Amino acid sequence: MSGHFQTRGGRRLAFDRLDGGGALPGVVFIHGFRSDRNGTKALDLEEWCRETGRGMLRFDLAGHGESDGAVEDFGITDWLDDAREIIDAQALGPQVLVGSSLGGWLALLLAREDPRRWAGLVTIAAAPDFTRRMQQEMGEEERAALAEQGRITRPSAYGEDYVFSHRLFEQGEDNRIFDAPLLLTMPVRMLQGKADQEVPPSEATALRDHAEGPDIELTIVEDADHRFSQPEHLQMIRAAIEDVSIR
């Protein structure tokens, strides 16, 4: 099933839902910043879910893909509220929550606020609190641009320049992971590439050390970059979901 979901805030989110047989937990995939629900990881997971009889929900965050708006019009709170709402409406029953980069930040927030909701959690190059790290690295010129223009622009290795808005940084401060305890009672698998230029492996180690829970594992993959989309990496994502599903 494909369509658009209307949020209470009036935003239309594009989504695809695959109905499963119910014997296995479904999968909810949250994509990264400036990505969308049709990325390599999301489509590979949908193929696997279809083969294994799992349900799956993948959707475009506001301002991304085929959803309404422009990326710079939204922030972490907006995306968190929308993710929570569409998941509650379209992904019934036990679910494994999978988040990539920005989606990993959102997934961690969702898992922290309602841990009983999730059968498992898998993060891929999770980028919690990346707005704080960006602010700490800003020079005077960027700080002035953010204050005066309400946005900054940075080149991207993946296409068009990225625009980061004041709203993004402001809402990032309201949703920090490292400022509060992170109790994750569900099985958790964190995947991180050692060759990631966007999220340093040290950030993944810090996240693992910050999280508390009975079954949390971090795997740092030598040759993986931020995309984490080579065939062997896709297989690792599948294996991680399978692992947290059977615990």
Score class of each variant (00 low, 15 high):
99 G>H: 02
196 D>Y: 01
121 L>E: 03
194 K>Q: 13
25 P>S: 11
3 G>D: 09
173 E>V: 06
178 F>S: 06
192 Q>P: 08
45 L>G: 10
246 I>H: 13
117 R>E: 01
158 Y>I: 00
165 S>M: 08
165 S>K: 10
87 I>H: 07
195 A>N: 06
99 G>D: 07
199 V>H: 06
218 L>I: 10
32 G>C: 12
82 D>K: 08
31 H>R: 05
120 G>H: 08
29 F>W: 14
14 A>N: 10
240 A>C: 12
93 G>Q: 06
226 H>P: 04
163 V>S: 03
149 Q>W: 11
209 D>K: 13
56 M>N: 10
76 I>T: 15
119 A>S: 15
201 P>A: 12
184 L>H: 02
241 I>S: 07
50 R>W: 02
198 E>K: 05
12 R>Q: 12
21 G>K: 03
14 A>H: 14
186 M>W: 05
188 V>F: 05
129 D>E: 03
95 Q>C: 06
208 R>L: 14
118 W>A: 01
82 D>A: 03
173 E>I: 00
148 E>R: 15
206 A>M: 07
77 T>C: 06
84 R>K: 15
237 I>S: 03
6 Q>G: 05
138 M>N: 10
236 M>P: 00
67 S>A: 10
66 E>R: 15
8 R>D: 08
201 P>W: 00
52 T>K: 12
146 L>T: 11
176 R>V: 08
212 E>S: 14
227 R>H: 08
218 L>T: 11
99 G>T: 06
1 M>K: 10
21 G>H: 04
136 Q>C: 11
103 G>W: 04
222 E>G: 03
217 E>Y: 10
232 E>Y: 06
89 A>P: 05
135 Q>T: 13
133 R>T: 13
186 M>V: 07
232 E>S: 10
22 G>A: 08
146 L>F: 12
182 L>D: 08
189 R>C: 03
171 Q>V: 04
247 R>I: 09
54 R>T: 05
106 L>K: 02
159 G>V: 04
177 I>D: 00
94 P>C: 02
71 V>W: 14
76 I>M: 13
191 L>N: 01
30 I>Q: 09
206 A>F: 01
225 D>M: 05
158 Y>T: 03
10 G>V: 02
99 G>Y: 04
176 R>M: 12
85 E>R: 11
224 A>G: 06
48 W>E: 13
153 T>E: 13
225 D>I: 06
139 G>V: 13
156 S>H: 00
196 D>R: 01
73 D>S: 14
115 P>D: 02
80 L>R: 09
13 L>P: 00
80 L>E: 03
217 E>V: 15
184 L>N: 06
170 E>A: 15
42 A>Q: 10
116 R>F: 01
46 E>I: 12
13 L>H: 01
94 P>Y: 05
246 I>N: 07
12 R>T: 01
